[in-house]
Design a protein around this nucleic acid. Structure first.
Lengths: 140, 140
DNA sequence: CTGCTTGCAAACCCTTTGCAGTCCC
DNA sequence: GGGACTGCAAAGGGTTTGCAAGCAG
Protein backbone atom coordinates (compact mmCIF):
# COMPACT_ATOMS: atom_id res chain seq x y z
CA UNK A 1 0.00 0.00 0.00
CA UNK A 2 2.83 2.34 0.89
CA UNK A 3 4.56 1.50 -2.37
CA UNK A 4 1.59 2.84 -4.29
CA UNK A 5 1.83 6.11 -2.37
CA UNK A 6 5.45 6.45 -3.31
CA UNK A 7 4.76 5.60 -6.90
CA UNK A 8 2.39 8.53 -7.06
CA UNK A 9 4.91 10.94 -5.66
CA UNK A 10 3.68 11.01 -2.07
CA UNK A 11 6.15 10.68 0.75
CA UNK A 12 5.82 7.68 3.00
CA UNK A 13 6.02 9.27 6.41
CA UNK A 14 5.83 7.67 9.82
CA UNK A 15 2.31 9.07 10.23
CA UNK A 16 1.04 7.73 6.95
CA UNK A 17 2.56 4.37 7.70
CA UNK A 18 0.68 4.29 11.01
CA UNK A 19 -2.62 5.21 9.40
CA UNK A 20 -2.22 2.61 6.68
CA UNK A 21 -1.33 -0.07 9.17
CA UNK A 22 -4.36 0.72 11.29
CA UNK A 23 -6.58 0.44 8.25
CA UNK A 24 -5.10 -2.88 7.19
CA UNK A 25 -5.29 -4.39 10.66
CA UNK A 26 -8.91 -3.49 11.19
CA UNK A 27 -11.63 -5.12 9.16
CA UNK A 28 -14.39 -2.77 10.16
CA UNK A 29 -15.79 0.15 8.35
CA UNK A 30 -13.81 3.06 9.67
CA UNK A 31 -15.00 6.55 10.25
CA UNK A 32 -12.29 9.17 10.47
CA UNK A 33 -12.99 9.35 14.20
CA UNK A 34 -12.64 5.61 14.77
CA UNK A 35 -9.49 5.49 12.71
CA UNK A 36 -8.08 8.40 14.67
CA UNK A 37 -8.78 6.61 17.93
CA UNK A 38 -7.00 3.48 16.75
CA UNK A 39 -4.00 5.37 15.44
CA UNK A 40 -3.89 7.57 18.50
CA UNK A 41 -3.50 4.58 20.82
CA UNK A 42 -0.08 3.68 19.50
CA UNK A 43 0.91 7.12 18.26
CA UNK A 44 -0.49 9.77 20.57
CA UNK A 45 1.33 12.48 18.68
CA UNK A 46 -0.55 11.99 15.43
CA UNK A 47 -3.40 14.45 15.01
CA UNK A 48 -6.85 14.15 13.45
CA UNK A 49 -5.90 16.40 10.61
CA UNK A 50 -3.37 13.90 9.37
CA UNK A 51 -6.05 11.21 9.38
CA UNK A 52 -8.26 13.30 7.13
CA UNK A 53 -5.45 14.23 4.79
CA UNK A 54 -4.21 10.66 4.54
CA UNK A 55 -7.69 9.28 3.93
CA UNK A 56 -8.14 11.82 1.18
CA UNK A 57 -5.00 10.63 -0.56
CA UNK A 58 -5.82 6.95 -0.10
CA UNK A 59 -9.30 7.48 -1.49
CA UNK A 60 -7.89 9.35 -4.45
CA UNK A 61 -5.60 6.43 -5.19
CA UNK A 62 -8.49 3.99 -4.69
CA UNK A 63 -6.58 2.22 -1.95
CA UNK A 64 -9.51 2.88 0.26
CA UNK A 65 -13.12 3.04 -0.69
CA UNK A 66 -15.70 5.43 0.60
CA UNK A 67 -19.00 4.04 1.82
CA UNK A 68 -22.27 5.84 2.15
CA UNK A 69 -25.63 4.83 3.43
CA UNK A 70 -26.66 3.30 6.69
CA UNK A 71 -26.66 5.41 9.78
CA UNK A 72 -23.13 6.70 9.40
CA UNK A 73 -22.07 8.17 6.12
CA UNK A 74 -18.45 8.73 5.32
CA UNK A 75 -16.99 5.43 6.27
CA UNK A 76 -14.04 3.80 4.63
CA UNK A 77 -12.94 0.27 3.92
CA UNK A 78 -9.88 -1.11 2.23
CA UNK A 79 -10.56 -1.06 -1.46
CA UNK A 80 -9.22 -3.48 -4.01
CA UNK A 81 -8.18 -1.27 -6.88
CA UNK A 82 -9.34 -2.19 -10.38
CA UNK A 83 -12.15 -4.25 -8.97
CA UNK A 84 -15.59 -2.87 -8.49
CA UNK A 85 -17.25 -4.42 -5.50
CA UNK A 86 -20.37 -4.10 -3.42
CA UNK A 87 -20.85 -4.31 0.29
CA UNK A 88 -22.86 -6.30 2.72
CA UNK A 89 -22.97 -4.39 5.95
CA UNK A 90 -23.93 -5.71 9.37
CA UNK A 91 -26.18 -3.35 11.28
CA UNK A 92 -25.04 -4.91 14.52
CA UNK A 93 -21.26 -4.85 14.46
CA UNK A 94 -20.54 -2.90 11.28
CA UNK A 95 -18.75 -5.84 9.72
CA UNK A 96 -18.38 -5.32 6.00
CA UNK A 97 -18.30 -8.18 3.54
CA UNK A 98 -17.47 -7.55 -0.06
CA UNK A 99 -19.06 -9.34 -2.92
CA UNK A 100 -18.17 -8.88 -6.52
CA UNK A 101 -20.06 -11.69 -8.12
CA UNK A 102 -23.03 -9.86 -9.42
CA UNK A 103 -22.80 -8.31 -12.83
CA UNK A 104 -24.84 -5.21 -13.42
CA UNK A 105 -23.87 -4.47 -16.97
CA UNK A 106 -27.05 -5.97 -18.38
CA UNK A 107 -29.25 -4.00 -16.00
CA UNK A 108 -27.22 -0.89 -16.70
CA UNK A 109 -27.63 -1.24 -20.43
CA UNK A 110 -31.37 -1.76 -20.20
CA UNK A 111 -31.72 1.15 -17.80
CA UNK A 112 -29.68 3.38 -20.07
CA UNK A 113 -31.81 2.46 -23.04
CA UNK A 114 -35.06 3.15 -21.25
CA UNK A 115 -34.07 6.31 -19.43
CA UNK A 116 -31.68 7.71 -22.05
CA UNK A 117 -29.25 8.41 -19.21
CA UNK A 118 -25.56 7.93 -19.78
CA UNK A 119 -24.79 5.76 -16.77
CA UNK A 120 -21.39 6.21 -15.21
CA UNK A 121 -21.53 4.11 -12.10
CA UNK A 122 -23.57 2.78 -9.27
CA UNK A 123 -23.62 2.16 -5.56
CA UNK A 124 -25.06 -1.02 -4.12
CA UNK A 125 -25.09 -1.90 -0.47
CA UNK A 126 -27.02 -4.53 1.40
CA UNK A 127 -27.85 -4.18 5.06
CA UNK A 128 -28.55 -6.91 7.52
CA UNK A 129 -27.20 -8.93 10.40
CA UNK A 130 -24.09 -11.07 10.24
CA UNK A 131 -24.21 -14.62 11.68
CA UNK A 132 -22.56 -13.61 14.96
CA UNK A 133 -24.98 -10.75 15.57
CA UNK A 134 -27.95 -12.94 14.74
CA UNK A 135 -26.89 -15.31 17.51
CA UNK A 136 -26.37 -12.49 19.96
CA UNK A 137 -29.86 -11.28 19.18
CA UNK A 138 -31.62 -14.61 19.61
CA UNK A 139 -29.38 -15.67 22.49
CA UNK A 140 -29.66 -14.62 26.19
CA UNK B 1 -49.38 13.46 2.90
CA UNK B 2 -50.65 15.68 5.69
CA UNK B 3 -53.35 13.15 6.48
CA UNK B 4 -50.70 10.56 7.24
CA UNK B 5 -49.10 12.96 9.68
CA UNK B 6 -52.38 13.44 11.48
CA UNK B 7 -53.05 9.74 11.53
CA UNK B 8 -49.81 9.28 13.43
CA UNK B 9 -50.68 11.87 16.01
CA UNK B 10 -48.64 14.74 14.61
CA UNK B 11 -50.22 18.15 14.32
CA UNK B 12 -50.57 19.58 10.86
CA UNK B 13 -49.20 23.05 11.33
CA UNK B 14 -48.80 25.85 8.81
CA UNK B 15 -45.05 25.23 8.79
CA UNK B 16 -45.31 21.53 8.16
CA UNK B 17 -47.82 22.18 5.40
CA UNK B 18 -45.34 24.54 3.76
CA UNK B 19 -42.49 22.07 3.98
CA UNK B 20 -44.59 19.25 2.57
CA UNK B 21 -45.80 21.43 -0.28
CA UNK B 22 -42.27 22.43 -1.18
CA UNK B 23 -41.20 18.80 -1.26
CA UNK B 24 -44.11 17.79 -3.46
CA UNK B 25 -43.65 20.66 -5.90
CA UNK B 26 -39.97 20.01 -6.41
CA UNK B 27 -38.78 16.91 -8.17
CA UNK B 28 -35.13 17.27 -7.24
CA UNK B 29 -33.19 15.63 -4.54
CA UNK B 30 -33.45 18.01 -1.65
CA UNK B 31 -30.84 18.73 0.94
CA UNK B 32 -32.11 20.33 4.13
CA UNK B 33 -30.43 23.55 2.97
CA UNK B 34 -32.10 23.56 -0.45
CA UNK B 35 -35.46 22.74 1.06
CA UNK B 36 -35.01 25.53 3.56
CA UNK B 37 -34.26 27.99 0.77
CA UNK B 38 -37.39 26.98 -1.13
CA UNK B 39 -39.62 27.16 1.92
CA UNK B 40 -38.03 30.37 3.05
CA UNK B 41 -38.97 32.13 -0.20
CA UNK B 42 -42.68 31.96 0.49
CA UNK B 43 -42.49 31.76 4.26
CA UNK B 44 -39.60 33.87 5.52
CA UNK B 45 -40.63 33.22 9.09
CA UNK B 46 -39.98 29.50 8.99
CA UNK B 47 -36.60 28.54 10.39
CA UNK B 48 -34.11 25.84 9.49
CA UNK B 49 -34.79 23.95 12.65
CA UNK B 50 -38.33 23.26 11.57
CA UNK B 51 -37.05 21.87 8.28
CA UNK B 52 -34.88 19.39 10.11
CA UNK B 53 -37.56 18.37 12.53
CA UNK B 54 -40.16 17.98 9.80
CA UNK B 55 -37.82 15.95 7.60
CA UNK B 56 -37.13 13.68 10.51
CA UNK B 57 -40.81 12.99 10.97
CA UNK B 58 -41.46 12.51 7.26
CA UNK B 59 -38.55 10.09 7.00
CA UNK B 60 -39.81 8.18 9.99
CA UNK B 61 -43.21 7.80 8.35
CA UNK B 62 -41.51 6.84 5.05
CA UNK B 63 -43.18 9.75 3.29
CA UNK B 64 -39.78 10.86 2.29
CA UNK B 65 -36.79 8.74 1.48
CA UNK B 66 -33.23 9.42 2.45
CA UNK B 67 -30.56 9.17 -0.21
CA UNK B 68 -26.88 8.64 0.31
CA UNK B 69 -23.92 8.42 -1.95
CA UNK B 70 -22.69 10.75 -4.59
CA UNK B 71 -21.06 13.97 -3.53
CA UNK B 72 -23.82 15.10 -1.22
CA UNK B 73 -25.08 12.75 1.41
CA UNK B 74 -28.28 13.43 3.25
CA UNK B 75 -30.60 14.20 0.42
CA UNK B 76 -34.27 13.45 0.38
CA UNK B 77 -36.84 12.62 -2.25
CA UNK B 78 -40.52 11.91 -2.02
CA UNK B 79 -40.90 8.29 -1.17
CA UNK B 80 -43.80 6.12 -2.24
CA UNK B 81 -44.61 4.11 0.83
CA UNK B 82 -44.99 0.36 0.40
CA UNK B 83 -42.98 0.46 -2.77
CA UNK B 84 -39.28 -0.06 -2.73
CA UNK B 85 -37.57 1.86 -5.47
CA UNK B 86 -34.13 2.70 -6.68
CA UNK B 87 -32.74 5.90 -8.06
CA UNK B 88 -31.02 7.06 -11.17
CA UNK B 89 -29.31 10.32 -10.36
CA UNK B 90 -27.98 12.87 -12.82
CA UNK B 91 -24.58 14.22 -11.86
CA UNK B 92 -25.29 17.34 -13.88
CA UNK B 93 -28.63 18.66 -12.70
CA UNK B 94 -29.43 16.33 -9.79
CA UNK B 95 -32.54 15.04 -11.52
CA UNK B 96 -33.72 11.86 -9.87
CA UNK B 97 -35.52 9.16 -11.78
CA UNK B 98 -37.03 6.25 -9.93
CA UNK B 99 -37.10 2.76 -11.23
CA UNK B 100 -38.73 -0.15 -9.56
CA UNK B 101 -38.52 -2.76 -12.25
CA UNK B 102 -35.57 -4.72 -11.06
CA UNK B 103 -36.17 -7.50 -8.62
CA UNK B 104 -33.41 -8.23 -6.18
CA UNK B 105 -35.04 -10.97 -4.20
CA UNK B 106 -33.15 -13.69 -6.08
CA UNK B 107 -29.81 -11.98 -5.56
CA UNK B 108 -30.69 -11.33 -1.95
CA UNK B 109 -31.53 -14.95 -1.33
CA UNK B 110 -28.34 -16.20 -2.90
CA UNK B 111 -26.28 -13.64 -1.00
CA UNK B 112 -27.96 -14.58 2.25
CA UNK B 113 -27.26 -18.23 1.65
CA UNK B 114 -23.60 -17.68 0.87
CA UNK B 115 -22.82 -15.11 3.54
CA UNK B 116 -25.20 -16.38 6.22
CA UNK B 117 -26.27 -12.77 6.74
CA UNK B 118 -29.87 -12.02 7.50
CA UNK B 119 -30.46 -9.38 4.86
CA UNK B 120 -32.88 -6.63 5.78
CA UNK B 121 -32.58 -4.21 2.92
CA UNK B 122 -30.44 -2.60 0.33
CA UNK B 123 -29.55 0.65 -1.31
CA UNK B 124 -29.04 0.91 -5.04
CA UNK B 125 -28.29 4.10 -6.87
CA UNK B 126 -27.04 4.67 -10.36
CA UNK B 127 -25.12 7.77 -11.33
CA UNK B 128 -24.84 9.32 -14.74
CA UNK B 129 -25.99 12.10 -17.01
CA UNK B 130 -29.59 12.71 -17.99
CA UNK B 131 -30.40 13.35 -21.69
CA UNK B 132 -30.56 17.13 -21.24
CA UNK B 133 -27.20 17.32 -19.50
CA UNK B 134 -25.61 15.10 -22.13
CA UNK B 135 -26.67 17.62 -24.78
CA UNK B 136 -25.40 20.53 -22.75
CA UNK B 137 -22.08 18.77 -22.43
CA UNK B 138 -21.60 17.96 -26.11
CA UNK B 139 -23.16 21.23 -27.27
CA UNK B 140 -21.48 24.72 -27.30
C1' DC C 1 -56.81 24.96 27.72
C1' DT C 2 -53.05 21.76 27.27
C1' DG C 3 -49.34 20.04 25.32
C1' DC C 4 -47.13 19.63 21.01
C1' DT C 5 -44.53 22.97 17.95
C1' DT C 6 -41.84 26.69 16.83
C1' DG C 7 -37.87 30.15 16.47
C1' DC C 8 -34.01 31.87 18.39
C1' DA C 9 -29.52 31.31 19.93
C1' DA C 10 -26.12 28.69 21.48
C1' DA C 11 -23.95 24.41 21.69
C1' DC C 12 -21.98 20.75 19.20
C1' DC C 13 -20.30 17.90 16.33
C1' DC C 14 -17.14 16.98 12.02
C1' DT C 15 -14.19 18.78 8.57
C1' DT C 16 -11.22 22.20 6.42
C1' DT C 17 -7.76 25.86 6.35
C1' DG C 18 -3.59 29.02 7.58
C1' DC C 19 0.70 29.00 9.32
C1' DA C 20 5.15 28.02 11.41
C1' DG C 21 8.00 24.33 12.36
C1' DT C 22 9.51 19.45 11.00
C1' DC C 23 11.12 15.71 8.43
C1' DC C 24 11.49 12.66 4.31
C1' DC C 25 14.19 11.95 0.28
C1' DG D 1 18.72 21.50 1.91
C1' DG D 2 14.31 22.07 -0.11
C1' DG D 3 9.79 21.13 -0.58
C1' DA D 4 6.36 18.22 1.01
C1' DC D 5 4.30 17.09 5.38
C1' DT D 6 2.67 17.79 10.12
C1' DG D 7 0.36 19.76 14.28
C1' DC D 8 -1.93 23.33 16.36
C1' DA D 9 -5.51 26.40 16.61
C1' DA D 10 -9.06 28.62 14.61
C1' DA D 11 -12.51 29.01 11.25
C1' DG D 12 -16.28 27.01 8.91
C1' DG D 13 -20.53 24.43 7.84
C1' DG D 14 -24.20 21.49 9.04
C1' DT D 15 -27.09 19.59 12.64
C1' DT D 16 -28.95 19.30 17.34
C1' DT D 17 -30.64 21.08 21.78
C1' DG D 18 -32.68 24.22 25.61
C1' DC D 19 -36.01 27.31 26.43
C1' DA D 20 -39.81 30.62 26.40
C1' DA D 21 -43.56 31.85 23.50
C1' DG D 22 -47.22 30.35 20.17
C1' DC D 23 -50.75 27.70 18.22
C1' DA D 24 -53.44 23.32 16.74
C1' DG D 25 -56.87 20.41 18.39
Amino acid sequence: MGAVLRRHGYKLTRQRRAVIEAIIVSQDRLTPAILYAKVHQDHPDIGVVTIYRTLEILAELALVCELHGGTACHRYVIGQPEQHHHHLICSGCSLVTDFTRHDFSALERSLARQSRFRIDGHLLEFFGLCPACQEKQSGP
